[in-house]
Lab assay of single mutants.
Amino acid sequence: NRRVIAMPSVRKYAREKGVDIRLVQGTGKNGRVLKEDIDAFLAGGAKP
C-alpha cells in the first residue's frame, strides 16, 4: 500500500469523479498526483 502524494483539492476531485487515487500514476514533482493525472486516468489510463 503506497503513500499517495496529492493536494487535498486533488484528493477531493478524485473522490467526486469516483477515482481511487491509489491507482493513478502521479506525474508531478516527486510523483505527486495532479488534477491532470486524474483526467488522464478517466480518459483511458495513466500517463506513461
Rank of each mutant, 00 (worst) to 15 (best):
L42Y: 07
A6G: 11
R3E: 11
K47N: 04
V24I: 12
D37C: 01
A40F: 12
G28K: 04
G18M: 10
A14F: 00
E16W: 03
L23R: 07
K12Q: 15
R15G: 14
M7K: 02
G31A: 09
E36I: 15
G26T: 05
F41G: 08
A43V: 13
V4A: 07
R11S: 11
R22N: 14
D20E: 11
V33F: 01
K47F: 04
G28L: 02
V4K: 12
G26Q: 06
D20Q: 11
E36F: 07
L34Q: 15
V24L: 11
R2G: 05
T27F: 05
M7W: 06
F41M: 13
L42D: 15
E16L: 02
L23V: 12
R15I: 10
A14G: 07
E36G: 12
N1Y: 01
G45A: 14
T27N: 13
L23I: 15
A6W: 05
A46L: 11
M7R: 03
G45I: 09
K12H: 14
R2C: 08
F41N: 08
I5R: 03
A6F: 07
G45K: 12
Q25H: 03
L23W: 03
V33I: 15
G44C: 02
K17Q: 09
G44I: 05
E16F: 04
T27R: 07
I5N: 05
K35T: 04
Q25G: 10
Y13F: 15
R32Y: 08
G31V: 06
A6V: 09
A46H: 02
P48I: 15
R32M: 10
A46E: 15
A46F: 11
D37R: 00
L34S: 04
I38T: 03
K29T: 11
E36K: 07
F41H: 14
L42N: 04
R32L: 10
K12L: 14
V19H: 00
K29L: 03
R3C: 04
K12G: 13
E36D: 15
I21L: 13
G45R: 08
V19R: 00
R15A: 12
D39Q: 06
I38P: 00
V24Q: 02
P8W: 06
L23A: 12
V19P: 00
M7L: 09
V24T: 04
D37P: 00
A40N: 12
R3K: 04
G31F: 09
I21F: 10
L42F: 12
V4I: 14
K35W: 11
A43H: 12
D37T: 01
M7T: 02
G28I: 01
Q25M: 10
A40H: 06
P48A: 15
R15L: 14
I21T: 13
N1G: 02
L34D: 02
G26H: 05
E36Q: 07
D20F: 01
L42K: 09
V4H: 05
R11T: 14
R11Y: 06
N30D: 13
D37G: 00
R22E: 15
G26V: 04
K29C: 05
K47A: 07
R3T: 07
R22K: 15
K35G: 06
N30Y: 10
V10K: 00
V10Y: 02
N1L: 04
Q25S: 11
S9E: 15
E16P: 00
R32E: 13
R2I: 15
A43Q: 14
R15T: 14
T27Q: 08
A40L: 13
R15M: 12
G44S: 12
A43R: 10
N30R: 07
F41V: 11
T27P: 00
M7Q: 02
I21E: 09
G18T: 06
L23P: 05
I38G: 01
L34F: 12
D39K: 15
K17W: 09
R11F: 13
R32H: 08
G44K: 03
R22Y: 08
G44D: 12
S9F: 13
D37Y: 00
A46W: 08
R11M: 14
D37W: 00
R11I: 15
G18L: 09
V33A: 06
A40R: 08
K47I: 07
L42Q: 07
Q25V: 08
K35M: 07
R3N: 14
E16R: 05
G18D: 06
L34V: 10
R2S: 08
R2P: 02
V33H: 15
V33G: 00
E36P: 08
E16Y: 03
R11V: 15
I5F: 07
I21R: 02
N1H: 01
F41I: 15
R2Q: 13
M7A: 00
R11H: 05
K35Y: 13
K29E: 12
V10E: 13
N30M: 11
V10H: 01
R22W: 13
D37F: 00
K12N: 09
R11L: 15
P48G: 04
V33P: 02
R3H: 02
V10T: 04
L34T: 03
L34N: 09
L23H: 10
K17R: 12
Q25E: 12
I5Y: 02
V24G: 00
R3G: 07
